[in-house]
Every structure is written in C-alpha cells, then in structure tokens.
C-alpha cells in the first residue's frame, strides 16, 4: 500500500466537505471489500482515504409512505436479515443473502455495491430490477435519479456518473404490493459461497385480479457492463395471463439477445446464452409461486 492520509468524519456534512477538499485524489471507504484489496495491490493510489463507517445516519432500512429507503451504509447482512425486505422484496433479499460470504456480507454495504457498479454486483442487479432511485449528495446539494440514469458511465474508467466529491447516500424504491406483485432473484455461480455471479437474474412482475400481467421488469447481472434489460421479453408478458408456459416463451428471445450482446466473448457466451434461460426458469417458478398462480415442478 502506498502512503495516504486517513480521515473518519462523524457526519455526512463533514464527509462531503472533506471529499470536496481532497477531490483531486480521494477514495472513500465503507465495507472495504473492494478498496482495501485495490490499495493492497497498489492498484488504487489515493492521497486521502475517507472512512464512512462512522456515519451511523446512513445505516437504516425504513418504509415511509409506501417507499422503502435504505441508507448507503446498510450492510448486505442487515438487508438479508430484515424481515420486511424478506417478505416484500424477495429480489433484494435473495441478492444480498448470497453476496460473497457471511464475513463479506457483514462488511460490504449496499451503497458500496451500487457505487462500485461492478459488472457482477448482485445488489446492483436487484436494485436495477426494482427500478430503484439513488440519492447523491455533495457540497453542491442533493440530486436523485433512477439507477438506470446513474449507470451512464464510460465502462472501465468511469463506472457511473458519481462525481469525485459526491456520495451515494440512499437507495429507494416503491414497496411492492405483494398481493399483486412478486419479485425474485436467482444467482448462478460456481459455488454456493464465496463465488462471484456468473449470472444474477432478477424479475418484478405484477398481475391484476384475473392473473393478467400488467407490469414486468427483467434484468440480469454479469451479462454486460451493466445489468442487462430484456424489454422484448417484458413486452411479451404484459397483457397476457401470467403462466409458466407463457413465461417460457420469452426464453428464445433471451437466448438470442444474450448471444448478440456477447458474441465478442465466445468463451463465455456459449454457456451464458443457455444458462440465462435456466436462471430465469428458476425466477419464473418463484414468481408464480409467490403470486399463488402456479407451482412449477422441475
């Protein structure tokens, strides 16, 4: 590790001030599960490191007026253990429950997962599936936007639109009405633990009282720079009765889309174009189960 100065501010305001002051070469640290490794391998070489872990004001899960608000410093373990998230937001529960290992989940935060915008970030895939908003704060003020807008980066050099002195403070999304809406996530990885996602597939589906699909959103992590949307698949489902058979009709579309988007990576696409279908079969079965529409036997 190269030398750097270390600050541990006690409030967000103080942190933003420090970030602004040192924005030429600053790194912020929360869980540290990415940054400490990069520092240790001399891949990240900031002059100043600002610790966010003391900002208790950003560690919360709240439901207010039908909106779930999660503070950036909430750990994956805390989200996975939250009863409301488990019951109402399965996509996020399942994603956070399987990140890394128990040790990593105790350290890693949802804010870090979103701000890092890793290709295979499970929390990110789940939040994008939920069409979540993020709140960014700096000394200049606060801005809020959809995650989809936040993820307008330039690939490797710039992960997202976060400015050097800007802090992601909150992620929020509408609390799903579980009488009509189900959310699900399935992680495909080489092992059950300590494994990066090969594909992390998420879905939100809403049906009316007659079981007709009125809304569908499908995203999958680790298939591109950002979680991959499947708009044609979603359009295929909306307006139809939500059944396993109908959902399976989207798989060939998914296959072709994954193949087209990843054909420059032949070593992985031949596996992923097939396995993405297996991932979503699991997701579909879970959605139908939660909505009480159908029990799919494998």
């Amino acid at each position: 590790m190269r030398p750097f100065d270390f600050y541990a501010p006690a409030t967000v305001v103080e942190a933003l001030e420090l970030m602004h002051q040192h924005k030429e070469n600053v790194a912020v640290i929360a869980g540290g599960t990415d940054l400490v490794l990069e520092l240790n391998e001399r891949k990240a070489n900031p002059a100043v490191v600002i610790d966010l872990k003391k900002l208790k004001e950003l560690d919360y899960i709240r439901v207010e007026e039908g909106v779930v608000r999660i503070g950036a410093l909430t750990t994956h373990a805390a989200i996975a253990a939250d009863r409301q998230i488990e019951k109402y937001v399965r996509v996020l529960h399942e994603a956070c429950r399987q990140v890394g290992s128990p040790q990593i989940r105790n350290l890693g935060t949802i804010g870090g997962n979103l701000a890092q915008s890793s290709v295979a970030g499970d929390g990110l895939a789940a939040c994008v599936t939920l069409d979540a908003d993020v709140t960014l704060r700096s000394v200049r003020g606060e801005r809020r936007m959809k995650l989809d807008e936040f993820l307008a980066g330039e690939g490797a050099t710039r992960r997202n639109i976060l400015a050097a002195d800007e802090l992601l403070t909150e992620v929020s999304f509408a609390l799903p009405d579980i009488r009509h809406t189900a959310t699900a996530f399935y992680k495909l990885a080489k092992r059950k633990s300590l494994a990066i996602s090969v594909i992390g597939g998420g879905m939100v589906a809403t049906v009316d009282d007659n079981g007709i699909c009125t809304y569908a959103r499908m995203r999958a992590g680790a298939l591109g720079r950002y979680p991959m949307p499947f708009p044609t698949c979603e359009a295929h489902l909306v307006g139809k009765k939500l059944t396993y058979a109908t959902m399976l009709e989207t798989l060939p579309i998914m296959h072709d889309q994954v193949l087209e988007a990843n054909k420059s990576r032949p070593w992985s696409v031949f596996y992923k174009k097939e396995s993405v279908q297996g991932v979503f079969k699991k997701v579909f079965a879970d959605v139908l189960h939660q909505l009480g529409l159908e029990e799919v036997q494998e």
Binding site: F6, T33, L37, L39, V49, S101, Q103, I104, N106, L194
Partner: peptide, 29 residues
C-alpha cells in the same frame, strides 16, 4: 488470500465475523 476470499484472517468484530484483510486499521477505531 488478502482479498476476503478464504476467511483465514477472520476476527470477531463487534460481535460479527469479518475478514480483517478488508478493513483498514483506522476503521477499527
């Protein structure tokens, strides 16, 4: 492993197991 992947450096930190290779010394205040 120095990257939170093996668990050999696990310590109990405020009651929870964590990998001490992923924490800066200053964060342990």
């Amino acid at each position: 492993c120095s990257e939170g992947e093996c668990g050999a450096c696990t310590v109990i930190y405020n009651g929870e197991p964590v990998t001490s290779c992923c924490i800066l010394a200053g964060q342990a205040e």
